[in-house]
Simulated scan of single mutants.
Amino acid sequence: MTWTAPRIERRDIPAAAGERAMLQGWLDFHRATLLAKCAGLTGEELARAGSPPSTLTLLGLVRHLAYVERWWFRQRFAGEGVDGLYFTKEDPDADFNALDPARAEADYAALIAEIAACDAVAADRDLDATFTATDGRTLNLRWVYVHMIEEYARHNGHADLLREALDGETGA
């Protein structure tokens, strides 16, 4: 049986909420939007480039965002000693490259698991809690939330175009 990315439900974004709820709401919305763009597609379809000569794929975006979630929330902010996802010295863009449609379900599950782990790391931490970035800047958890919202928003624009090129589906 061929795996197909499941349909998902997006929650409404809070219209009037405190800062933390608003940041989490927008991040959750954008996370769900990426998953909605994948819904109903097989691993083969997720790994297919939608706009050659670009090699960008929905599966590459899923892998990339799992990597970025782990990097900012767990490795940088929380200082966890977890390995990076996909990234190697030989191929720093391995999240976009070396795609295996047969591993699409596992890659999709890795993003879901990473989201849960990142939410757990940030849940009880103050938005003003700081850490030092690799370039020496002092950043705070608020910065991570805003950066992740813009990261997903940018890539969801790519996902819109990829999905439409694959099967004509628009919206979500």
Rank of each mutant, 00 (worst) to 15 (best):
residue 3 W to Y: 08
residue 4 T to P: 00
residue 6 P to V: 02
residue 6 P to N: 10
residue 6 P to H: 06
residue 6 P to I: 02
residue 8 I to E: 01
residue 12 D to S: 14
residue 12 D to K: 14
residue 13 I to Y: 14
residue 15 A to W: 14
residue 19 E to M: 12
residue 19 E to K: 15
residue 19 E to G: 00
residue 21 A to T: 06
residue 22 M to N: 05
residue 23 L to R: 11
residue 23 L to M: 11
residue 23 L to H: 11
residue 25 G to A: 05
residue 26 W to Q: 12
residue 28 D to F: 05
residue 30 H to L: 03
residue 32 A to T: 08
residue 33 T to S: 12
residue 33 T to M: 11
residue 33 T to C: 04
residue 34 L to V: 03
residue 36 A to I: 00
residue 36 A to F: 01
residue 38 C to D: 02
residue 41 L to T: 01
residue 42 T to Y: 02
residue 45 E to S: 08
residue 46 L to E: 04
residue 47 A to K: 11
residue 47 A to P: 06
residue 48 R to A: 13
residue 48 R to P: 04
residue 48 R to W: 08
residue 49 A to G: 07
residue 49 A to K: 14
residue 50 G to L: 11
residue 50 G to Q: 11
residue 50 G to A: 09
residue 52 P to D: 07
residue 53 P to H: 13
residue 55 T to E: 13
residue 55 T to D: 13
residue 56 L to K: 14
residue 58 L to Q: 01
residue 59 L to C: 07
residue 60 G to V: 12
residue 60 G to P: 15
residue 60 G to E: 10
residue 61 L to H: 07
residue 61 L to R: 06
residue 65 L to G: 03
residue 66 A to M: 11
residue 67 Y to G: 03
residue 70 R to I: 00
residue 72 W to V: 03
residue 73 F to K: 07
residue 73 F to S: 04
residue 73 F to H: 09
residue 74 R to S: 08
residue 75 Q to D: 03
residue 75 Q to T: 07
residue 75 Q to S: 05
residue 76 R to C: 05
residue 77 F to A: 14
residue 79 G to F: 13
residue 80 E to D: 15
residue 80 E to M: 13
residue 81 G to P: 09
residue 81 G to N: 14
residue 81 G to T: 12
residue 82 V to T: 14
residue 87 F to D: 08
residue 91 D to R: 13
residue 92 P to E: 12
residue 92 P to L: 07
residue 92 P to Y: 13
residue 93 D to T: 05
residue 93 D to L: 15
residue 94 A to E: 09
residue 97 N to G: 00
residue 98 A to N: 15
residue 98 A to I: 00
residue 98 A to V: 02
residue 100 D to Q: 10
residue 100 D to M: 05
residue 101 P to I: 04
residue 103 R to G: 00
residue 105 E to W: 02
residue 105 E to P: 02
residue 115 I to E: 05
residue 115 I to L: 11
residue 115 I to C: 13
residue 115 I to D: 07
residue 116 A to V: 12
residue 118 C to S: 15
residue 119 D to T: 09
residue 119 D to Y: 09
residue 120 A to F: 13
residue 120 A to S: 14
residue 120 A to Q: 15
residue 121 V to Y: 07
residue 121 V to R: 13
residue 123 A to H: 10
residue 123 A to E: 15
residue 125 R to K: 15
residue 128 D to N: 14
residue 129 A to L: 12
residue 129 A to C: 10
residue 130 T to I: 08
residue 130 T to A: 15
residue 130 T to Y: 14
residue 131 F to Q: 07
residue 131 F to L: 07
residue 134 T to A: 12
residue 134 T to G: 06
residue 137 R to P: 00
residue 139 L to F: 14
residue 140 N to P: 04
residue 141 L to C: 10
residue 144 V to W: 01
residue 146 V to D: 06
residue 146 V to L: 15
residue 147 H to A: 04
residue 148 M to W: 05
residue 149 I to C: 09
residue 150 E to G: 03
residue 151 E to I: 02
residue 153 A to P: 04
residue 153 A to W: 03
residue 154 R to N: 09
residue 154 R to V: 03
residue 156 N to L: 09
residue 156 N to I: 06
residue 157 G to W: 12
residue 157 G to E: 08
residue 159 A to H: 01
residue 161 L to W: 10
residue 162 L to C: 04
residue 163 R to Y: 04
residue 163 R to G: 01
residue 164 E to P: 03
residue 166 L to F: 03
residue 167 D to G: 08
residue 168 G to D: 09
residue 169 E to S: 15
residue 170 T to A: 12
residue 170 T to W: 06
residue 170 T to F: 09
